[in-house]
């Protein structure tokens, strides 16, 4: 069933992927120390690198690249649902005061201007 060449091939692929994963880990640690102008950009960069690493794991270690499409469909559907969940929760939290400017005065202490916090974070 297994030929020597196939065996060597898989070992080589997995080794290259591992090398890429370790390199990206070093990159993300380095990037965290650099000021890109706003904390938001740093978060985006960190998540982009993490997603690149996760994609490598999914495509090669979890064989999604060569597997039947069903596995990838299930996986992507799950991620899409998470995206929907994330999107609406953020949409609500971010838009609460922008649409109801008068609410802050009556709202509990928690509602101290969220937009100001976002600005101060950046």
């Amino acid at each position: 069933m297994s030929t020597h060449a196939e065996n060597k091939n898989a070992v080589r692929t997995y080794s290259i992927v591992l090398g890429a994963l370790l390199t990206l880990t070093a990159v993300t640690v380095t990037a965290a120390g650099i000021n890109f102008g706003s904390a938001f950009i740093n978060v985006v960069i960190a998540l982009a690198i993490a997603s690149a690493k996760a994609s490598l794991v999914a495509l090669y270690f979890m064989h999604l690249r060569h597997d039947r499409p069903m596995s990838a469909i299930i996986f992507v559907t799950g991620l899409a649902m998470l995206a929907i969940f994330l999107m609406f929760c953020f949409l609500d939290t971010l838009s609460r005061e922008q649409v109801q400017p008068g609410l802050t005065a009556q709202a509990p202490a928690r509602a101290v201007s969220i937009s100001a916090r976002i600005l101060s974070a950046s």
């Binding site: 904390a39 998470l82 969940f85 994330l86 929760c89 953020f90 939290t93 971010l94 928690r110 969220i114 916090r117 976002i118 101060s120 974070a121």
Partner: peptide, 13 residues
Amino acid sequence: FVGYGIMRMLHSQ
């Protein structure tokens, strides 16, 4: 992760 994201936004400092 969603809870983390919202809370980090509210308490970034």
